[in-house]
Amino acid sequence: MATVEVSFTPLPAHVRTARLVATAVARRSGVDEALLDEVRLAVGEACSRAVEAHRRHCPAEPVKIEMTDAGERFVVVVNDAATGDAAAGPGVSPGGSGNGTVEGQAAPPASPARGADDEGSATPPGFGLAMISGLADDVRVLSTGSGMSIRMSWPSAAAG
């Protein structure tokens, strides 16, 4: 089991770096090429959500990502430390996995700082999480005591 960890200051510019790293590690782990776009987009969405949460609640704290080649699955966990969002957050799905279902989709509070496009956006709160659920075939959103954790996984080479 190999794990790659990335920690970055919550700046939108770093989200691209995070998703590129995730895509590279996924490829290295043997995730099918056809799924790499989904990995890239889902990890980007999770990181964007975490960055916005950190910018609201704890801009000095880094966003953390763990990428693990766990045998038959490539697992990505995006952890934020924004307790404000976790408390009111998109519900919790303890063990809520399977077919990308994000349970308890109450979504983050409708903060004015939602995304970089709050003024021009018409997408509802939690839209990013909904997208993740449509991209990863296994998604778990957990509210931890210290923030929120989004765990996503895809089949890797060992599964074949």
Binding site: L41, G115, G120, F127, M131
Partner: peptide, 9 residues
Amino acid sequence: FLDSTGLGV
């Protein structure tokens, strides 16, 4: 590449 922020825009 296009994410939910882009869709929102």
